[in-house]
């Protein structure tokens, strides 16, 4: 599966894929921007606006107006990501969160603390998804931080639907999740 269906209903969708499905998420942002306003939280330094502009241009001649429809903010630490989600007001506009777990995989923050912060993040996502569609992308942890897999599980547990851009069996494994080492989940190479 390479395309994301257009989210209209209020719900929390989680996309799990290598590189946090960056290209598909950018494409999705472009498609939504042509239709109306949306909000983007970039938690993994992923929002390359150029492919978005090109995709928008394919759909409409009013490229600038469509790009103005996208309001984004970037978070570079998990504390910032939490603060950004706390500040987002529930809205019927779609909300895209890019690479949510990237900063939570950061080794500078001890895992228990990352888990605690993620616990604070999830209620905000779920509150936002009561008012409008929320699409969150995430990647499996890289091989050097394989022990951070519980973060991904926590996120998947709270989702209304999961887009398995990973092989389905790998995702199944991630949802059962005994111990990270025993999983067949392909870890992100970088």
């Amino acid at each position: 599966m390479n395309e994301l269906a257009l989210p209209i209903e209020p719900q929390l969708l989680v996309v799990v894929a290598p590189h946090a499905a960056r290209d598909q998420m950018l494409e999705l942002a472009a498609t939504l921007a042509v239709r109306g306003p949306l909000r983007v939280v970039d938690a993994g330094n992923q929002f390359n606006a150029y492919p978005v502009a090109r995709a928008v241009r394919r759909h409409t001649a009013r490229m600038r107006a469509a790009l103005e429809n996208i309001r984004l903010a970037r978070g570079f630490t998990c504390y910032q990501v939490l603060a950004m989600l706390e500040q987002l007001q529930p809205s019927s506009q779609p909300t895209l969160v890019f690479d949510l777990l990237a900063t939570f995989y950061d080794e500078d923050v001890p895992l228990p603390q990352s888990l605690e912060l993620l616990d604070q993040v999830l209620p905000h996502l779920s509150a936002l998804s009561k008012a409008g569609p929320v699409v969150v992308s995430a990647r499996p942890p890289g091989t050097v931080v394989a022990e951070r897999l519980p973060l991904l599980q926590k996120l998947l547990d709270g989702a209304d639907a999961v887009y398995p851009l990973l092989p389905p069996e790998a995702l199944q494994a991630a949802r059962r999740l005994p111990a990270p080492r025993q999983l067949g989940l392909p870890l992100d190479p970088d």
């Binding site: 970039d42 330094n45 992923q46 929002f47 390359n48 606006a49 150029y50 570079f76």
Partner: peptide
């Protein structure tokens, strides 16, 4: 802080 957009040389 890493930049989000590719540099002009990369873009080119």
């Amino acid at each position: 802080m890493g930049r989000t957009l590719p540099s002009i040389t990369q873009t080119f």
